[in-house]
Design a protein around this nucleic acid. Structure first.
Lengths: 354, 354
DNA sequence: TTGTAAGCGTTATCAT
DNA sequence: ATGATAACGCTTACAA
């Protein structure tokens, strides 16, 4: 059972060729006759050869240069987590000659994104992982990288119009469904629920639309459309008094409002409002384990948080890239990360992991 | 920045000794003078040496024999998942000379456990991972393994009276707290809740007690003891008509019963009962993503499942062992796995992962 | 088109 | 107590 390990040498012997020849077949390096190639290939299958990646990394002595383009995380724990995930994976994969350079851009400044993306392009790395926050401005780079044959993986924001090596992140539509389920569990009686998009340009943020669709569909697909009335609003915190007034008016006009679904991580803004107004009858569900949200979750003002797992996104993005580059695995086009339902009692498992 | 990698050879040169000497220092193999040892040690620190584990695995050519002792999983998807987790880790770690032998025992037959544990002991492996389902019968083996200096890791069932290398699994107490939170979210009005232990010998199952404690403490710590009345029952399904009668009587005596917390994976038994009796007003929360529970979750009869993540338990048990054995990391005494809150809309992420 | 041999970082054996 | 050297499995010139 404990089958002896099969080495290239074993294959070479059985095929009556040299290890160099087997290597050429294995890596399709050419300069080989068709019949030998077929024979070797057959024996490789027969003997069930599995490459030893440690030895391969050691022997080839190749360094893979991978770059990560991530929003600047000074004062944004979300992107900080993503970087931590990348760095964790980097530590694990250093053994295989993986070297990661990090580039940061200002998420509120397209120019910085373009600048860094250009720098990256010029450095001609072996692979790129990025959070493509700016839809329009990202596409030209996708084109360039494709023609340069540089594989790129996107995370956090799904861009389905163009095909990267992989997308790593959540299924926005499904997370809307999940939010719907949670509201129907905690609000068993008929009521109104408000969908609130905060601080985002809806036109450019397809993932928010998908969340809303999922949310709405939860109720229609489960024959709950009569029971729950859905409202929708787009808010900007820049003008805070307007922000307040807009919510005031929703609440005034809908005395049966018992839930607010915030499609972004800005749920704490609503929570602050509710606390100021001393409103306790409205349940709040939103995204991301940022400190302010955690604060209000612990206070009971936010009912559930849905974790978008930025750390996992970074971690798996790099792992996926290495699976492709180093281990030559076929990697899936999409890797959806789990939708974690977070309350005070289980939140600790989802923040400070190593 | 891209600091050249530091090899043993570099250290040897700087210290004016040979690589053999450095190796001896690195592994404390003795036969070395005190002053040389100190000097080398100092330089290792100075140069920030990090061993190359690939090269180490290759060079040492050592095979680590690790055994896993897990309940038989014919018709038990829970333990099947645990084995899948172990096998996934095994695939990843094969590169480092890890070889895992699996031993199975019948969870309803102590004798089989003892027999296999003895076999394992006789085989003198490099490490053992096991689910110590039988408390009393396990302890003598812990003793043996300790004196034999074989590291062992336990998962799923925490035995705090004895100190293994690590425990991998959930924090039962915390999961009780979590269940309490979930009930208070979905049952906002005052009511009775029943704690049901099913098919287990409470005297021997400390983790169930901890769950109950956590659950009770959730309500007392949050000043909800007046609002919710807790009841408790121990049930056996062997005598099914008795099983039904017992629940019947709880429901009769407590017309305000609106929740049942099942501390095991047998929630589906209660769900079946509720369905037969056409009772829809009682919320059900229990453990584990076994097919019958999933069935009732999808039907809306179970409100939430808490995932004990057997796959993760197996996966991390082996990883932990290898961290200790191969990478010489200091591993934590306890690794608590996340408490996953599962509903129909996110369950897919927690079952068929590769 | 194919084979040979040196080298990757580490360990292990054998001298000294 | 220390040093030299051949492995480990694979890649990569370079030679043939």
């Amino acid at each position: 059972m404990s089958s002896k390990i099969v080495r290239i040498k074993d294959i070479a012997e059985k095929a009556g060729v040299s290890t160099g020849t087997v290597d050429r077949v294995l890596h399709d390096r050419g300069r080989i006759s068709q019949d030998v190639k077929e024979k070797v290939l057959r024996i490789i299958k027969e003997m069930n050869y599995e490459p030893n990646y440690s030895a391969r990394a050691l022997g080839s002595n190749k360094i893979y240069h991978i770059v990560a383009l991530v929003p600047n995380h000074t004062n944004d724990s979300y992107w900080y987590e993503a970087v931590m995930g990348i760095e964790k994976a980097e530590r694990e994969l250093k053994q295989y000659g993986i070297n990661v350079s990090r580039y940061k851009f200002d998420p509120h400044n397209v120019a910085t994104f373009i600048e860094k993306a250009q720098e990256i392009t010029d450095s001609a790395p072996d692979g790129i992982i990025l959070a493509p926050l700016f839809y329009k401005e990202t596409l030209p780079f996708f084109d360039k990288w494709s023609t340069m044959k540089i594989p790129f993986i996107i995370f956090n924001t799904q861009i389905s119009e163009y095909s990267p090596l992989s997308y790593i992140g959540q299924d926005s539509y499904q997370s809307g469904l999940l939010a719907g389920r949670l509201f129907s569990q905690i609000n068993p009686d008929p009521c109104s629920i408000l969908i609130a998009h905060i601080d985002e340009d809806i036109g450019n943020a397809t993932h928010l639309i998908k969340k809303e669709q999922g949310f709405r569909n939860y109720f229609s697909h489960n024959n709950l459309a009569d029971k729950y009335t859905l409202h929708r609003i787009e808010l900007q915190r820049k003008n805070y008094s307007l922000f307040q007034k807009q919510i005031d008016s929703v609440i005034e006009n809908n005395p049966d409002l018992q839930g607010i679904y915030v499609t972004t991580s800005k749920g704490y803004a609503i929570a602050t409002y509710l606390e100021q107004r001393h409103i306790k009858s409205i349940n709040l569900i939103c995204y991301d384990l940022v400190p302010k949200n955690i604060h209000f979750l612990n206070k009971g003002i936010i009912s559930f948080l849905i974790n978008q797992n930025p750390r996992g996104q970074g971690y798996w993005s790099l792992h996926h890239m290495v699976d492709y580059l180093v281990f030559k695995k076929k990697v899936s086009l999409i890797k959806y990360l789990p939708l974690d339902v977070i309350v005070k009692e289980n939140i600790n498992y989802f923040i400070h992991e190593d």
